[in-house]
């Protein structure tokens, strides 16, 4: 959702989004790991979930940190490129460079190993039809829904959010209406960065904390965004679900090694039938 929002409002295909997830993941890891424990944030466990207050603090730190990082990048890189008349392609290549740099810094600090937020085995409970779900996964689904609802509220119910949509729709007219589009751009990077960090922590919770975990999700992420209709947050949510489920279900019939290709098969088929994505609207 963060990726599609940034594209919709800013016209930037942000290849660094996956590594922003990575940074969110590791900032939270820093808080809950032994370094964080020295600061007194690590402890606690909520009911049957695998984590406690430490990770809540970690999520907040991650969201603020990645939002701040995104702001700095807008000011130092994207704003300059925009002022110099940069096109979509220029933004994409710049963000690809940023992506590589960000990933390298994570690897430099934390190395190439895998980590977990909380060690130990966290058993799954069985729900309907023999499907096993971990308590953490319920939590992740809940947080995702909450984030989607909050994003909807921001975009459709607040003055700032409506100005974001107006800027995405028609930047020239937005500016002529007195909307400070630079402020809107900063705001969009903040929201996009926070969503990336949140997604990164959830990914770390669900799988493992690894320097390239966010990056490895980048291509399926783009697939989800394109599927949903680029620039459409609800489409992205649905596209993400579709891509994820299709990948897992496909292993019933095909070799697991081919799984990463599934999203793109779906994208090709959908785009052939609906060039603007499933929920893209004609202008």
């Amino acid at each position: 959702m963060g990726l599609t929002l940034v594209y919709g409002v800013l016209g930037v295909g942000d290849f660094a989004h996956g590594d922003k997830m990575g940074w969110g993941m590791f900032l939270a890891f820093f808080v809950v790991s032994s370094e964080g424990a020295n600061l007194g944030f690590a402890g606690g466990q909520f009911g049957s979930l695998s984590f406690g207050w430490g990770l809540v603090v970690g999520v907040l730190v991650a969201m603020l940190g990645v939002a701040a990082l995104s702001l700095v990048l807008e000011r130092l890189v994207f704003r300059r490129l925009r002022d110099a008349g940069g096109t979509f392609f220029v933004f994409a290549i710049a963000s690809l460079g940023i992506s590589i740099g960000m990933r390298a810094v994570i690897q430099l600090i934390w190395g190439p190993s895998n980590f977990r937020y909380t060690p130990g085995i966290h058993p799954a409970t069985e729900i309907l039809g023999g499907i096993k779900v971990k308590p953490d996964q319920f939590f992740i689904v809940g947080i995702t829904i909450l984030a989607a609802v909050l994003l909807y509220w921001l975009l459709y119910r607040t003055r700032f959010g409506k100005a974001m949509r107006a800027t995405a729709d028609n930047p020239g007219l937005a500016e002529a209406s007195g909307i400070d589009t630079n402020r809107i751009r900063y705001g969009t990077w903040i929201v996009g960065g926070m969503l990336a960090a949140l997604a990164g922590v959830m990914l770390g919770l669900q799988a493992e904390v690894r320097f390239d975990a966010g990056f490895r999700l980048l291509l399926p992420l783009f697939a989800a965004v394109i599927l949903g209709g680029i620039g459409n947050p609800w489409g992205a949510l649905f596209g993400g679900l579709l891509v994820g489920i299709a990948q897992e279900v496909s292993t019933q019939w095909i070799n697991t090694g081919l799984k990463p290709g599934i999203p793109f098969v779906i994208v090709i088929v959908v785009l052939l039938l609906r060039p603007r994505g499933l929920f893209g609207q004609a202008r």
Partner: peptide, 21 residues
Amino acid sequence: PQVDNVFTSMSIRENLEMGGY
């Protein structure tokens, strides 16, 4: 302006809200 003079993805009311931003 002659063209692109409304926010096409927004409602009539939202267009007016933006006009009165």
